[in-house]
Computed example of a mutant assay.
Amino acid sequence: MRYTIALTLLAATTAATACDKCANYDNANFRIKQVTVQHDARIAATIWEVTVEGTAGKTTPAPAGQLNGAPVLGYVFPTTLKSTDVGFSATDGIVALALTSHPDFDDSPLWDENADGDYGNDGVVWHPHWVVLNEDKRVAGGLAVKQFAEGDKSVKLPPTNPGMPMYMDSPGYQVITEGNTIRVVVPDYRINNRRDFSFDGVACFMEVNTGGAEGGHGSGDKPMLGVYKVYSVASKDLTLPYKVR
């Protein structure tokens, strides 16, 4: 039941127009045909895959030229995992693994995804985040990454987090794009050795809000990172029906 309200809101937005710029990315590269999570005992990891009608990962956002209003495209796996399974402190919400691209900023400073020796210039390269999503009616997609008060000592984030006051981690898993598939490899120990969870797949457009100040952390009228448009949902109704193979 804890997923029902937010997932219903998100599913309802698949037919809605959230913003003019969202339409620029509404193409076959974000129309999901299938999602799978398969366990491979040989490498003690799960392999998460999204298969689309077009070419997975080919479309990336056009830069906004600043952090405020920066676009983020994502292939997202909502799951029934607990926040504590992926290194956060206990909190309500939907734990999701998001594969994202955003050219205006780099939020994975520990990882050099394009292997050029510069750890701060590769936000456009598809990379993973663990996030906790909660309901947020301030955005058309009905969901946002859950925030907390800056400096709140009761909140625990993994040491690989990007240093923002929201439930987000930058775990550095390998992401591979190949034809119509994008996949990510997640070691078993990084999800508390869980294989009994359910999941779904969503392709969506998100946007950053800094409250008008570069480096700011949102404002009262918009969340720091919200969902503005859903392009497709693997199950069509976001019931998280899929199981790990």
Rank of each mutant, 00 (worst) to 15 (best):
G172I: 07
V76K: 00
T177M: 09
G117E: 13
T8R: 11
R138D: 03
A23Y: 00
F77T: 05
G69D: 04
L225R: 01
T210D: 04
A62Y: 02
A144R: 02
T4P: 01
D118P: 05
L143G: 03
N161V: 11
C19Q: 07
N68I: 08
F88Q: 01
D92N: 14
A70L: 11
A70Q: 11
K243E: 13
A64I: 12
V37N: 12
D200T: 05
D116W: 05
T51C: 05
A144Y: 01
V131M: 08
K229P: 00
N27M: 05
G54H: 08
Q38C: 13
W126G: 15
I47L: 11
N114C: 09
G93H: 03
R245F: 01
Y173A: 10
L73I: 05
L67F: 12
T210L: 11
D104E: 09
D196Q: 09
K137Q: 10
V202R: 02
N134D: 15
R2M: 06
K229V: 04
I176W: 00
S154N: 15
V125L: 03
P165A: 07
P61L: 11
K156F: 00
N180I: 06
V125D: 09
Y3G: 01
P162K: 03
G201C: 08
S219F: 02
T239I: 12
F105L: 15
I47A: 07
P159H: 04
A56Y: 00
E49K: 15
D107V: 09
L81P: 10
M224P: 01
A41V: 06
H129N: 07
G212C: 10
G151W: 06
A44V: 07
T84W: 05
V95L: 08
L110I: 09
V175K: 05
A149N: 13
N121P: 04
D112A: 11
A11K: 05
V124S: 10
E135S: 15
Q38H: 08
M1I: 09
Q34W: 01
S83K: 03
T239L: 07
V37H: 06
P171N: 06
